[in-house]
Design a protein around this nucleic acid. Structure first.
Lengths: 182, 182
DNA sequence: GTCTATATCAAGATAGAC
DNA sequence: GTCTATCTTGATATAGAC
């Protein structure tokens, strides 16, 4: 059942958002899906294999989003709004899966680390591409700094929001928009 | 030996920065310290007790820092620089212990959660206090939004920096300084 | 492709000797 | 205060039946 495989990846991604890669177990997954642990092991022999599949999925989604943004005619503000509204949907009450995997970085097998690196870099690159279109008068270095600031801000805000339960991301983004006008 | 207790908290804090609360074990701690697991259990009967001690330490340090900043005559820029340079020292190649604990939030016992909440809130409050002194012309709401943005940016940047290994925090902060002038 | 059963190992935790 | 020894539980993983 190829569908079961997808279902496992979906669930693993959800639990990584909530608890992190280290904290989830095949027991968690199997109980929620109503199957046995052995059944999960059939689809993903080792936990590492599942982690690789999840990060490949995240990377693929991000690449699709990158293409969508590149080929769109949206304004910079609209593109940024697209990015962080997508973040909210992806996180769905937890934290960003990328932040979660970054936190667990030291415990990740090499293959998963490489994917997390690639994902992190692509997020920065997407923002650099968004910014350079309309901020042509600013240097490449400044555009890179801005991309770092905006992505960092979005990701940090989501983590505080889960713990403190305020509209931290939305409010922080209002300030970021002002950065682009200055 | 009261010193051993402190030593365990120090080490736990270091490992939380590197791997996170969930990922560390009494076995890790005991091997590094050259004692037995049982010895760690003597000082902290349950892992939760150790987590509480660590977060109380983090909170205490932050409260001290808050007093220092409040009673200083530094400029806003200097205070912010103090904050994020302190972050770099605290993280020491890992991620911020607060970010680490935020990521593991779902897996934390209630008592530790409360401490993480308090710490997260105090970080925001410190920034609000820093900003309101010189940004009197801006409303309380805007000051809060700015505090959210700056703290989020610092914390997010540290996570990307560990994975991508660039000067992401410093560069992001350069852009944040511009926010304060606009 | 999914199951039962089981192996193996590590983690959190406790009892009791020294 | 630290140790040895041990317990329990849960996690990763495998073998082999259906």
């Amino acid at each position: 059942m190829e569908n079961r495989k997808t279902q496992i990846i979906d669930l693993a991604l959800k639990l990584i958002r909530e608890k992190g890669y280290v904290a989830i177990s095949y027991d968690d997954l199997s109980k929620i899906l109503g199957v046995t642990k052995a059944s999960i092991h059939y689809h993903f022999e080792k936990k590492e294999d599942l982690g690789v599949a999840v990060t490949e999925r995240v990377l693929q989604n991000l690449q699709d989003f990158s293409s969508f943004i590149t080929n769109s005619n949206l304004t910079v503000e609209e593109k940024i709004k697209n990015f962080y509204e997508r973040q909210i949907v992806l996180c769905d009450g937890g934290i960003c899966p990328v932040s979660s995997l970054q936190s667990d970085y030291e415990s990740l097998p090499e293959k998963i680390r490489q994917n997390v690196e690639e994902i992190s870099q692509l997020e920065i690159t997407i923002f650099k591409n968004i910014l350079k279109v309309t901020l042509e008068n600013r240097g490449a270095k400044e555009i890179e700094s801005l991309a770092f600031a905006i992505v960092s801000c979005i990701k940090g805000a989501i983590q505080y929001e889960r713990v403190l339960g305020k509209q931290i991301l939305t409010q922080a983004m209002n300030e970021i928009y002002r950065l682009l006008k200055g």
